[in-house]
Each structure stands twice: as C-alpha cells, then as structure tokens.
Design a protein around this nucleic acid. Structure first.
Lengths: 158, 158
DNA sequence: TATTGTTATACTCTATAACTATA
DNA sequence: TATAGTTATAGAGTATAACAATA
C-alpha cells in the first residue's frame, strides 16, 4: 500500500512497495523450486517448463509455440530444448508444413521422468500454499494475472 | 489452483502453477520498472533500492544493514554502493564503533535525485494497481508476504 | 522480404570462495 | 576465530544482433 503522509504527498517505503514485494517473493519461491529440480533431477527451470508444457499438450509442439506457452525467449527455449535432447528426454519430429521448424515431444524416458517430477512439483506448491485458504489461493492467482497483464500492457505502450 | 482429476490424482498445468505465475508476474513488473529507472535516471534496480532505503532511514546505514533491508546479497549491495559513490549520490562516513565498516548516507545531490525518482516510482505503482480495489491491494501484499516467508522457511529447512 | 531456429556477444544477477582489515 | 567489506570467478538469464534455411 502506498502510504500517504501529510497533505496528500505520497511517501515511498521499500517494504510496502509492490514491485519490491513481488520481486522478493518470486525470488524466494524460485530459489526453493530451482534448487529442488536441480539437485534431484538436474533440470533447470526452463527445462522443467518445457517438460511440463509438452507433458500437458496433447500433440507435439514447435519451439515457437513453446515460447508462447512458457513466456520465455526463443533463445532460452532453444537452449533448454538442446539440453533435453542431449539427455533424450525429448525428441524432434519433422514439421511437414514448415521445413524451418520441427515438432518436439517427450520420449518415453521423458514421460517417465516427468511422472516423478510432477508429484514433487505439486507437493512444493502445496507446501508453499499451506496456511492459505482455498479462496486466498484463487485470489492470489487472479491478482497476479491482473498485475502481470497491466505490466505487459504498460511495457508495450512505452 | 492445483487441479485434481479423476480419483484424486493431481495434474500439473503450468499456467495454473503458482511458482510460475509468480515468476512471470514479477518478471513483467520488473522489466517495466527497471527500464524506467534505467532510461530516465541511469539507475539499476539494486541502486534504486539503496537510494530508497537510505532516503527512508533517519540515520546513515552500514552495508550490512542494507543487506537486511533490501534482501540483496552483500556483493550486490557493494557494487550498487560503488556506482552511487562514483556519481556522488551517496557518501561514506567512518563507523566509530567498527573500523571495518562505514556508514552510508545520501548526499544533497542524491536527495534531490531521489526527490524526482520517488514520484515516478509511486506513479508506476499506481498504474500497476489500477483496476484493483484497495482491499485487493492489501490482500495481495499480505499473500505475497505469507508465501515469501513460507518459501524462506522451507529453503532454510532443506 | 519475413520468419524459425541457431549462434554469438554482452550485460546483469547469483553463488561461491578467497582475501584484507579489523574485531 | 569470526566478521565487514572487497575482489574475482563461474553459471544462469536476458537482450541483441546476425545468420542460414525456408516461407
């Protein structure tokens, strides 16, 4: 909450400043999660996001599509995909409609691994949200989406 | 919200996964804010956080204290301080009680600059929160603090 | 000409460790 | 011995540009 002191002149306190609060909360969560994936499965966050997206999709996806889903840069997606390809967790199929790109999908090894990663990920989410009511969680997701889309809009306008 | 399908087996959808939502929201906000400070005042986010902390404090602070306030690493704080020192936005006073450290405070130039940065920062916060009710904003801050402290606790325990 | 994926460069942030000078 | 600050190094993420193959 921006504090207002005296005759309407607003004062900034870092501790109450929303961009700061958002940043430190995201960092704390990210550190926890990233460490868990890294130590247990040797997966980076971008790699994990690709696995989750491919596991959730019913059909193979191009890297470009994965950029849209994960909101990551094409360079980040590409490097994450390379790592997963090297470990044979995903594989490439030719894209008949466009020779420049290819479709990515999980291998059976990849599916098996994600089968182990998924429960761990959900367990971490549960632990993070322990102490929050169901309604709070929905509220938080809604507010985060709203703030994110406002920020994206303002960035594009600038 | 973690979706639960079938007989209680939870399924992970990236788009609904809280650590992901938090990360992309924070990134979107951070990009917007960082660009504004950088282009208008040539300030990095760590530098900006130091300015805000020093402006808010009634007395000069050591770098260690600034680490605690900003939740940034001592290396990050140190480099941010160096940049501000070079531009004479802050200065150092000897610490009588401990010869290893020194106190940092804003110079008059630094105060003047922060006088311009502060309204801009508050304006960005206002714009980001436009469309949210006052109660929503308080709720968001509360939830972010809760999630952050849970994450910090879980990290320390691991 | 424009786009997909790729490679390269540079800059920031983190994490880590090692070093200094003080305590 | 331990701590505050400093320096150095390596890893990850982001941004940018340039390039090849294809559209």
């Amino acid at each position: 909450m921006p504090a207002v002191s005296g005759r309407g002149r607003a004062k900034l306190r870092l501790d109450d400043y929303l961009p700061y609060r958002l940043s430190v909360a995201a960092n704390a969560v990210s550190r926890l999660i990233a460490r868990a994936y890294e130590t247990r499965f040797a997966l980076s966050v971008p790699q994990w996001r690709l696995l989750a997206s491919l596991a959730d999709a019913s059909a193979p996806l191009t890297q470009q599509t994965l950029c849209g889903i994960t909101l990551m840069d094409k360079v980040t997606v590409m490097r994450a995909a390379q790592g997963l390809l090297r470990r044979r967790l995903i594989r490439r199929l030719p894209n008949d409609r466009d020779g420049r790109s290819h479709h990515l999908m999980l291998t059976s090894t990849g599916k098996r691994m994600f089968g182990e990663v998924e429960p761990l990920a959900l367990e971490y989410e549960q632990r993070l949200l322990q102490g929050l009511k169901r309604a709070d969680v929905q509220q938080l997701e809604r507010l985060l989406r709203t703030v994110q889309s406002t920020a994206t809009e303002l960035t594009q306008r600038a």
